[in-house]
Design a protein around this nucleic acid. Structure first.
Lengths: 207, 207
DNA sequence: CCTTGTGAACGCATTCACAGCA
DNA sequence: TGCTGTGAATGCGTTCACAAGG
């Protein structure tokens, strides 16, 4: 088995991918670690070190082939396949997520949505029929959902996350502003604008 | 001047605040670093160390007074005042942000919104009149905006961010999926569900 | 016994520096 | 010359361990 990769390295790969996609679009074929570094405000050494966890992708004197590195990173991140997602909670936020066009081009497809509110169940938004929250476990398995997005009120979020974990979901993107617990083996990513704001105000107050 | 605080410490304070608010609501008066740690999946030592950057808030044998620590952290983070925010880009995402109820209780108030699209300018959403993007610089100063939220398409995001920085904004929350550049002294926080998903798929592919 | 606060030790991520190659 | 890949060195955040106090 290959040497364990630090989480922080993995978390940087999507950014590399972003820049590489841009370079591709600009028609640039080769890029050095220095070139990548200047676009990402990182040191060239860090980029080389990060990439070297996964293999040798560069050529001395030339740099990295943009297209090649792009594909390699996509594969490393598991982005060479389609991922199926389920949304839990179709309130205001949930609907914005269902409408969001940014998932599809990256290979993430919403295949199910669940809601407790009887008035919403059965309605169709963006090609997905809203199902009763009660059938979550069964439906998630039938549809081979890989990733769940949680957009329910804070008070219900932990329960929903427990149910998702129990249904075999291994990756959860949580929009509820709580510090949730997950069993070992389940990845949880929180996404919370308020927390992001709250650490900026620290710096705003002491300039 | 007090010893420089690591960014990573500051970024954890909002989470402490979250848990403390919950404890307060539960009527718990004292909590030990171990108690906080178990709720946050952190070691007690780390919590004590983090807090000790800012002062001595605990009592031996007892732990921390929940209410006191809550207030202290709020003040440290600059959350004992109201912050004014401006939104740039009132598309689908922008509207969801304008509708979002989670900012107000935390002391963040949207006071302005800007849009390029003529059809939207002048309309009123949630008490805020949408202004012409062209008057951004002037309006942001008049309204003493502290923080900007960027919700424009990727292609325009860097330009918008440049304009905001030029208008004297020192903190920007960016929803556009780009790796933007800001001048020294401006804080930029990105918020991007796709990036969050893309690092989870790495782990999904190798279980 | 229970806690906190904190210097010291540790371990990990970043950076350095250079061999190897085009 | 330019650049990568990588062991070694550095630096920083986490954890340890304990004095001091309840």
């Amino acid at each position: 088995m290959r040497r364990q990769i630090p989480d922080v390295v993995v978390s940087r790969l999507p950014m590399y991918l972003r820049v590489l996609a841009l370079l591709k679009a600009e028609g640039i074929d080769f890029i050095s670690s220095r070139g990548l570094g200047s676009r990402l405000k990182m040191t060239p050494a860090q980029i080389r070190k990060d990439l070297c966890y996964f293999g040798k992708f560069g050529r001395q004197g030339r740099g990295y082939n943009v297209g090649r590195l792009f594909s390699e990173l996509k594969q490393i991140l598991g982005l060479d396949k389609q991922w199926s997602m389920a949304l839990v909670g179709v309130g205001r936020l949930g609907r914005a997520i269902m409408d969001y066009k940014g998932f599809i081009p990256e290979g993430f497809k919403l295949v199910a949505a669940f809601e407790k509110d009887r008035n919403l169940i059965g309605k169709k938004i963006g090609g997905v029929v809203i199902e009763d929250f009660a059938v979550l476990g069964k439906s998630v398995k039938e549809k081979n959902v890989d990733i769940a997005i949680v957009a329910v009120p804070s008070s219900e979020a932990q329960n929903v996350i427990d149910m998702l974990a129990q249904s075999g979901i291994k990756a959860i993107l949580n929009y509820a502003p709580i510090c949730a617990r997950v069993p070992r083996g389940v990845r949880l990513q929180g996404i919370d604008p308020v927390v992001a704001l709250q650490s900026m105000t620290f710096y705003l107050t002491r300039v």
